[in-house]
Design a protein around this nucleic acid. Structure first.
Length: 921
RNA sequence: GGGAGCAUAGCUCAGUUGGUUUAGAGCAUCUGCCUUACAAGCAGAGGGUCCGCGGUUCGAACCCGUGUGCUCCCA
């Protein structure tokens, strides 16, 4: 078969994904094996995969594929999240484009559109997962609004309500004026912005009047025409549009500037509403003018002060962020427009003293990016304390391990220890409708359905056939996602079914650190509450994917690449490689297309190694060993066991080239063991680096060159078979990271009876130290000789005669062939004295003399030797200093001292050899 | 304001209980090569005050203190 010049991933990737699906390799059913379970963090149903997802899904696929190839019953559950706010916003936007206003639709009509939208776009995300090669069990695909899932959410809500853990009440919450819904505290992101502080005059009402008119209801009216003192106080505020909601002004009781005003009143500018001056320790004397306006309806701190001082609450904002009737002025204007107009009016009336820029933090809605408004509102809440305690314990006891632990444990702990009640109602239609039913008087009951609700209602309120109306609101998306690891296996709706009993708790959760509170902590709470057991054993946090300048990826910056474009350009394997190669757990990843290019080049390197091996396939020669020689080698092998050299497990017969095959076999075992340990520590990026280097350097650059036959020469059949076997092993090691090319190569190497995706890893043998060490010496000698040739401008093509001066000749006899091939030597001989007119180098304690037909420039050589000498002398000096330090010799461990002595002796020998060489030049 | 983490080569990062050399890798750079698998390549090389200062120790990239800078979380 003719193999193309370069590897082209496109058709190959599609072909294998289809094949794997058709074979059902990703399907999982409970059996006698140990399960390895991952539930995907469900992406938003109408979204697309961005680079953050790509990293996440790749990590999960690596873990799942590795488990599947290691004897586990691997189950990766895919799915998507209905994402109430985000999706509803998209559907509303889509309707708007069609000229349809959501307000003119009934709930049912709207939901019909929403489901249509979901049907149309919900699969995009799945097709991207396929492109990326994700080995998920498609038969288990779950959506958070599936019937059973919907029921589970309702069941949990009712259950928590009955346990007293869900309640309804008026609290200060964050309001999103664009989405027109309440938000949880977690859905508000604080951003540093440059705001303005406006210094506004509040007139002080004269004391006589204030004393008598304190209880006057129509205060604003009466004060208009009242005699006023010329005194005023100045209040700094960043929100002048809320002054109409002021119900007091407040200073610190210890502030001498203001405490004489005790019992007095001021007039709120523009509307001349009379409000009292109150005092509270909360006020910071040094901030602004030291006196604050108190607007309990629109600030959490003001709200608390209001409660304490029994102030009334005047809500001056509508749900859409415009000013309400209560504001009296600028009614219907947007809050920011109103701010400008009010500032202008204050200016005109001489009530604005000054404006000052200042840094402040503002809360923004995570979903709509609008400025969130603190607002008093009646909503549904989850009482968190009781749920938080077991969730905290599961992590602090080490039952659930977080990776990287040191970084996130403290964050997790802090949040759970200080957790506030969770606002779970949203004023939306897309989501699970809250199962509370009300009568006309606002009396309500909570039940799983209307029939049930009526029964309970009638009993509870001793009435009959009352008309009940269900709560209009839906539940927070996260109130459904926190059940994910349970309900994907129907663990809420059908407790104790065989799936939930087998797959739960899941093995690993892989997710972004940004949703540690939204999702991870709450899943642990739900798990502890409903399964009395952790939902997963390990949590692996990936970092955020940024661009190479370290900026967040965003649509505005246009620095967020399209996944499918990248796959088209480089192939899915290369994308997976590129994103994994530099992403240590928990650290942000600076995404650079250059690393995808590196991945593509790696593909190509593997492809070319395949081409080389296939070139040899037709040129196999039978083993040139007689049966007698074979027996001899086998007996040597037995001896080698005693010497610590790993015997080769014969694939076919042994050959004369067996140093290379033995060395590589051991190297392969060494790396396989190393990889295993890295997997256990979730150090996937490092594991990939090691495999990359094993394939590129050890296999391609060294091993294949060592066994490469001369031009058009045949290759020993046994060496060939071994090489194919090694290649298969390498592909297996790499498969979890780069599934497509490895499967393709596996099948191109030879006729296979199975597929790599499900091929089980063999347990690696313990590698032999001696042969690995010998391999290192060989590599070092080759590199050193090439270097000296390079530095002395000896052309690689030029033949050399190599003379080795060593006390350990046996180290070299078995590798002579490889050595001469690699440094282009026409002869190798051993010597006891320096060779005239040659280049000499030192490796360890052995000297190598390189004879060429070329005239040698001794200057270059001398320079190099002197440099080496200088280094060694410096080194020797530092070792001697250590050894001559009495306290070191007294205190250090014996083996450390021994080592230093050996270093000293080695350095001295080497210095002697170099000085000898220098004297002969 | 409270808390956490980080600072090692031009860039991105390893560096295990303090001692295997005067600190490693990949990418980038430089030099030489179109050598029959691969120029998306091969063979080599150069490059570091381990953020500053102080301490503990026979010995510190590593432990402690402190300063500086960056990132994240929370209010």
């Amino acid at each position: 078969m003719e193999l193309s010049k370069n590897y082209s991933p496109a058709e190959i990737e599609n072909k294998w994904y289809e094949h794997w699906l058709q074979k059902g390799y990703f399907k999982s059913e409970p059996d006698s094996r140990e399960p390895f379970t991952i539930v995907i963090p469900p992406p938003n149903v109408t979204g697309v995969l961005h680079m953050g997802h790509t990293l996440n899904e790749t990590v999960q696929d690596i873990l799942v594929r590795k488990a599947r190839m290691s004897g586990y019953n691997a189950c990766w559950v895919p799915g998507s999240d209905h994402a109430s706010i985000a999706t509803e916003a998209k559907v509303v936007g889509m309707l708007k484009e069609k000229g349809i206003d959501k307000n003119n639709l009934s709930r049912e009509e709207f939901l019909k559109y929403a489901f249509e939208w979901k049907e149309k776009y919900g699969d995009i995300i799945y097709s991207q997962l396929k492109k990326l090669g994700c080995s998920v069990d498609w038969d288990r695909t779950t959506f958070t609004m599936d019937d059973h899932y919907y029921k589970a959410v309702i069941k949990v809500f009712v259950d928590l309500y009955n346990k007293g853990l869900v309640y309804r009440g008026a609290r200060m919450i964050h309001w999103d004026p664009v989405a027109k819904t309440a938000l949880s505290d977690e859905e508000v992101e604080y951003k540093e912005i440059t705001g303005k502080l406006y210094y506004i005059k509040y007139k002080i009402v004269n004391s006589e009047l204030s004393a008598v008119s304190k209880e006057t209801p129509d205060l604003a009216e009466t004060t208009h025409n009242s005699p006023l003192t010329t005194d005023y106080i100045v209040i700094a505020t960043q929100r002048p549009e809320t002054i109409m909601g002021d119900t007091a002004v407040c200073a610190n009781p210890g502030d001498e500037r203001y405490n004489k005003l005790l019992g007095k009143y001021v007039l709120v500018p523009l509307i001349n509403k009379k409000v009292p001056i109150i005092f509270d320790e909360y006020v910071d004397k040094d901030f602004g003018t030291g006196i604050l306006k108190i607007t309990p309806a629109h600030d959490i701190n003001d709200y608390n002060i209001g409660l304490k001082h029994n102030l009334s609450i005047v809500d001056t904002l509508n749900d859409d962020g415009t000013l309400s009737e209560a504001a009296q002025i600028y009614v219907g204007e947007d809050r920011f427009v109103a701010r400008k107009k009010i500032v202008e009016e204050l200016k005109q009336k001489g009530l604005l003293i000054k404006e000052e820029e200042y840094q402040t933090r503002l809360g923004f809605s995570q979903r709509t990016n609008s400025v969130a408004e603190p607002k008093i509102s009646t909503q549904w809440f989850v009482r968190m304390k009781a749920l938080a305690d077991p969730a905290l314990k599961a992590v602090t006891d080490g039952e659930i391990k977080i990776h990287p632990g040191e970084k996130f444990l403290a964050t997790y702990k802090y949040w759970l220890e200080n957790v506030k009640d969770w606002c779970i109602s949203r004023q939306l239609w897309w989501g699970q409708q809250i199962p509370a039913w009300y009568d006309e008087d606002g009396r309500f009951v909570v039940a799983e359905n209307e029939g049930e609700a009526k029964k309970i209602f009638n009993t509870q309120y001793s009435t009959n056939n009352t008309q009940l109306k269900q709560d209009e609101d839906v539940l927070d998306t996260w109130f459904s996602s926190w059940l994910w690891p349970i309900e994907v296996f129907n663990g809420i709706t059908e407790p104790d079914n065989k799936d939930i009993n087998y797959y739960y708790p899941t093995s690993v959760l892989v997710t972004g650190q940004d949703i540690i509170f939204f999702w991870v902590a709450r899943m642990i709470m739900a798990g502890m509450e409903y399964k009395k057991e952790k939902p997963f054993s390990d949590v692996y946090f990936t970092g955020m994917v940024r661009d190479k300048q370290g900026r967040k990826m965003s649509k505005q910056l246009g620095n967020s690449p399209d996944l499918l474009d990248l796959i088209d350009k480089y192939g899915a394997d290369a994308v997976r490689f590129g994103i994994m190669i530099s992403s240590p757990a928990g650290n942000d990843l600076l995404f650079d297309e250059a690393s995808l290019e590196q991945g593509r080049n790696f593909n190509n390197k593997i492809w070319n190694a395949l081409k080389l091996v296939k070139l040899w396939e037709g040129r196999k020669s039978e083993s040139n060993l007689s049966e007698g020689a074979e027996a001899m080698i086998l007996s040597q092998m037995t001896m080698n066991i005693d010497l610590g050299v790993m015997p080769v497990v014969p694939i076919g017969l042994l050959s004369e080239d067996n140093f290379a095959t033995q060395w590589f076999e051991n190297r392969l075992n060494e790396v396989t063991i190393e990889i295993e340990s890295l997997y256990k520590q979730f150090r996937l990026s490092e594991a990939l680096k090691i495999i990359y280097s094993l394939i590129w350097d050890d296999f391609c650059s060294w091993y294949l060159e060592w066994i490469k036959p001369g031009f058009e020469q045949p290759i020993d059949e046994n060496v060939y078979n071994k090489t194919v076997y090694f290649f298969e092993q390498l592909m297996q090691l790499l498969h979890p990271f780069m599934p497509f090319i490895t499967e393709e190569i596996y099948h191109l190497l030879k006729e296979q009876t199975d597929d790599l995706t499900v091929k089980q890893f063999e347990k690696p043998e313990k590698p032999g130290h001696t042969i690995l060490e010998q391999g290192n010496i060989l590599k070092e000698v080759i590199t050193a000789i090439r270097d000296v040739k390079n530095k002395n401008q000896v052309k690689p093509k030029e033949k050399i005669r190599l003379h080795i001066q060593t006390e350990h000749k046996h180290n070299y006899t078995s590798i002579e062939d490889i050595l001469s091939k690699q440094v282009n030597a026409e002869s190798i001989s051993y010597t006891h004295h320096p060779i005239e007119n040659s280049l000499s180098i030192l490796v360890g304690k052995d000297k190598f003399f390189i004879e060429t037909d070329q005239v040698i420039d001794t200057g270059v050589q001398k320079e190099q030797l002197e440099k080496d000498l200088e280094y060694l002398k410096g080194f020797l000096n530092s070792v001697e200093k250590k050894l001559s330090n009495e306290r070191f010799v007294q205190n250090a461990k014996a083996e450390v001292i021994e080592l230093e002595r050996k270093k000293k002796a080695d350095a001295e020998t080497r210095i002697k050899i170099i000085e000898e060489s220098l004297s002969t030049i």
